[in-house]
């Protein structure tokens, strides 16, 4: 009886892991398949589809996505750190309410935020800013609460005695911020900024309302294309963008992001 259960348990885990990895494996296989109809597993492989990635059709949206994600990561990083500093470090009166306000966009589905922003811009007659400026603004609204929360958690968790020690040794506030507070919260902030970059780069539900012909982000270009064709170029585009994201995470990790934070940020 017990043995049957153990077998079932392992079988269940194996099935779930297959379910999780199957679509990814299929996309990678399709991107290397020589046949233009994406059907069966390829027995021969080719990298010819990856050659299409440098066509304007994919390169332009990719560059726009990178540009927007970089700006969004930068803006939400700065604003998030400032807000967390004001609420947690300076302990402004009413911080709980302020924090709830800063995090409130999290409880609204993205598609609803998207509708709201596009209606608002149209009503006030700013349809002209659709495209890059609107995308940046909307992605900042999306990313800012996450960055603020991560920065606030880092600020609340770091050992205040270090700061007090520096103060009693005569360090000015500016020196303490520069040499103690900022280095201590750096891992948390960096992972927040990486996260902001990724959610902007991959975003669909907000972007779908705000892109303009000729001003389209990569995921939107991909889903527009998918509506009428499933060819292997799509697989190549998707695999390339996944590799790009993994590289970004790896680079931020090198600068001292996630794992430093996992080890308690005590470097």
């Amino acid at each position: 009886m017990n043995r049957v259960l153990t077998c079932l348990f392992w079988l269940a885990i194996a099935l779930v892991l297959t379910f999780i990895t199957l679509p990814l494996a299929v996309v990678v296989a399709a991107s290397l398949s020589p046949s233009s109809a994406v059907t069966f597993l390829p027995w021969e492989w080719t990298t010819v589809w990856y050659g299409n990635l440098l066509a304007d059709r994919w390169l332009q949206p990719f560059l726009l996505s990178v540009k927007i994600a970089t700006v969004v990561a930068g803006i939400s990083g700065v604003l998030g750190v400032l807000a967390a500093y004001a609420v947690v470090y300076e302990r402004l009166p009413g911080s709980t309410a302020i924090m709830a306000g800063l995090l409130s966009p999290l409880s609204v589905p993205q598609i609803v935020k998207g509708v709201a922003i596009v209606l608002f811009l149209s009503i006030i007659g700013l349809q002209g800013v659709l495209g890059t400026p609107a995308l940046i603004a909307a992605h900042v609204v999306l990313a800012l609460p996450f960055v603020t929360r991560m920065a606030a958690t880092s600020l609340a968790n770091f050992d205040g005695n270090l700061d007090r020690a520096a103060q009693s040794l005569g360090a000015t506030k500016r020196q303490r911020l520069q040499h103690i507070v900022l280095p201590m919260i750096k891992p948390g902030v960096l992972s927040g900024v990486t996260f902001a970059f990724i959610i902007s780069f991959n975003n669909i539900p907000l972007s779908v309302f705000l892109v303009r012909p000729g001003d389209t982000t990569l995921p939107i270009a991909v889903i527009n294309y998918l509506e009428y064709s499933l060819d292997p170029v799509m697989a190549a585009v998707n695999v390339a963008s996944m590799i790009f994201i993994l590289t970004v995470i790896f680079l931020f990790e090198k600068v001292g992001g996630f794992s430093a934070q996992l080890h308690g940020g005590s470097k």
Binding site: V78, L79, G80, L82, A83, A84, Y85, A86, V87, V88, Y89, E90, R91, L92, S95, T96, I98, M99, G101, L102, S104, P105, A137, V140, V141, L144, T148, R149, A152, T153, L155, A156, N157, F158, G160, D163, R164, Q167, K173, V181
Partner: peptide
């Protein structure tokens, strides 16, 4: 983040605190 003890006692510069909060509030 808020229930944990804050790192430092509130500094006198309250107005500058609200000032650094302003950009986020404005954007949101």
């Amino acid at each position: 983040a808020l229930t944990a003890p804050a790192a430092m006692p509130g500094a006198p510069a309250r107005s500058s605190g609200y000032l650094v909060l302003a950009p986020s509030c404005l954007v949101l």
